[in-house]
């Protein structure tokens, strides 16, 4: 752990982090080590040895973020058909399926089969948003939907009767593994930029025709809280990796935080 240069006030936090993360991120190659790719808590990956001496991912010991992919295509499936011809339709494009991550506790599957089949629990006829009466514990962020500024509700994205699916403009279902087809309904410009390979992230081969793993929307963005409060940014904040070591003989980096301009009279910047 690199806690030694943190300000005093952070020491407690650092200690706590140490206690929390040590069992998980203590040593390399520990079989139960788990870290996250882009979205903390919702893009988890377990460290595994894929061939002698080669791990699928290397993780940061301070933040638990994935730092390095030994096999960029581990656990991926073909991206599937896209509605518009683009570069990747001639390439081998793969994605990491979202369903296993979203349905970790099998709630999605159970709920949709047991009750929400369109009969047992009727489909609501009015679209006007109302407070959920049940399941507040199983649907995180449901009471506090921060997406669409009050203009959309659950069933604009989730399928009416198939709760393990999303819904397109014609009422057909979309797999959770292809959220881009859903998000592209409204965010057309971002969708086009993503298809061009500009928005978002890919790993694998850069060369023409090379195999690429494409990140899909929900691997980076939380669809129930894209606004992130006043930050109004689609990406949740992260803990940064530690700063570089100070040059020998330098005790702190206060010189960097000094305002020498006309406003401050040389006060340290907070």
């Amino acid at each position: 752990m690199t806690c030694y240069r943190f300000p005093q006030t952070l020491f407690g936090l650092c200690l706590l982090l140490f206690l929390i993360t040590t069992p998980l991120h203590g040593t390399e190659n520990q079989t139960d080590q788990e870290c996250f790719e882009s979205r903390d808590g919702m893009s988890q990956v377990k460290v595994e040895e894929i061939s002698p001496g080669l791990v699928n991912v290397k993780c940061s010991s301070t933040t638990g973020g994935v730092l390095w992919w030994g096999d960029p295509f581990a656990g991926t499936i073909p991206m599937g058909d896209m509605d518009i011809e683009a570069d990747y339709s001639t390439e081998e494009a793969v994605v990491k399926p979202r369903e296993p991550e979203l349905d970790k506790n099998k709630m999605l599957t159970i709920c949709s089969m047991a009750c929400h089949d369109g009969n047992y629990v009727p489909i609501p006829h009015s679209k006007s948003p109302r407070r959920l009466k049940m399941h507040l514990d199983t649907v995180p962020d449901a009471l506090n939907l921060k997406h669409g500024k009050g203009n959309i509700w659950c069933l604009d994205c989730h399928h009416l009767v198939e709760r393990t699916k999303l819904i397109d403009n014609f009422g057909y279902s979309i797999s959770f593994n292809q959220p881009q087809k859903l998000c592209g309904k409204c965010h057309g410009q971002v969708y086009r930029s993503w298809r061009d390979g500009l928005h978002g992230k890919r790993i694998g081969m850069w060369d023409k025709g090379g195999k690429k793993r494409w990140w899909v929307c929900t691997e980076c963005h939380n669809p129930h809280d894209v606004e992130q409060e006043e930050r109004n940014s689609g990406f949740a904040q992260l803990r940064p990796e530690p700063a570089p070591n100070l040059p020998k003989g330098m005790d702190n980096a206060n010189h960097e935080r000094m305002h020498h301009g006309p406003h401050s009279g040389g006060n340290a910047h907070e």
């Binding site: 940064p240 020498h260 910047h269």
Partner: peptide, 16 residues
């Protein structure tokens, strides 16, 4: 106005 020059050693809890 004047702002700080680039900082190397920033270490906030959360970024950005």
């Amino acid at each position: 106005g004047v702002v700080l020059e680039g900082q190397h050693y920033y270490e906030p809890d959360q970024v950005p």
